[in-house]
């Protein structure tokens, strides 16, 4: 496995990108439970935040054209450093700075050997929940699909 520093300088890292996306959607309960379950809790040093600010959300003209500014969203973010050196970033929609800090911790842990099973377990739980919620919504929407049928008119 690459060391944390090298990994950060590398171009798009699909595994980390995916993990950060899941951490952004983890609930406070999920994050807290995973933290409590950690056998070996690391020392965490704040680097930046946690803090709340705004991100200007952009859309595209016509859906796929040039970008325009749609409006802002609240975002909370945190950057932390583990005593073992790994840097973690957490960033998510909303004003929950506690979640952002925990997300940063798990982002850092994901880069450290030794904790990967616990981090994977958390990511797996979040991914399963999201997939279930998404599936449920898609099914509910599908039930409202119109099944057209054509009426036969005129003489038999």
């Amino acid at each position: 496995m690459m060391d944390a520093k090298l990994k950060q300088e590398s171009p798009p890292d699909p595994a980390r990108k995916n993990a950060m996306g899941l951490l952004a959607r983890a609930t406070l309960d999920e994050l807290n439970a995973a933290w409590e379950a950690l056998a070996d809790k690391p020392d965490v040093h704040p680097v930046r935040g946690p803090e709340t600010g705004l991100v200007m959300v952009r859309g595209r003209i016509g859906g796929g054209g040039d970008p325009f500014n749609l409006g802002e969203a609240t975002v909370s973010r945190a950057t932390i450093r583990l005593s073992t050196g790994e840097i973690g970033h957490g960033q998510l929609l909303g004003t929950d700075r506690q979640r952002a800090r925990l997300a940063a911790i798990f982002d850092a842990l994901a880069q450290r050997d030794g904790n990967s099973a616990e981090v994977e377990a958390l990511l797996g739980r979040v991914a399963d929940r999201l997939a279930q919620e998404e599936r449920r919504k898609a099914e509910e929407t599908a039930a409202t699909r119109v099944d057209f049928f054509t009426m036969v008119r005129g003489d038999d």
Binding site: R16, G21, V55, G63, L70, A73, I87
Partner: peptide, 25 residues
Amino acid sequence: VEVELDLPELGFAVSLGTIRVTECQ
């Protein structure tokens, strides 16, 4: 829809979560 923010520290965009929007063509 997913909201993604580019993180200069990492050099790629990450998801911040989703927002609900309405679009009309």
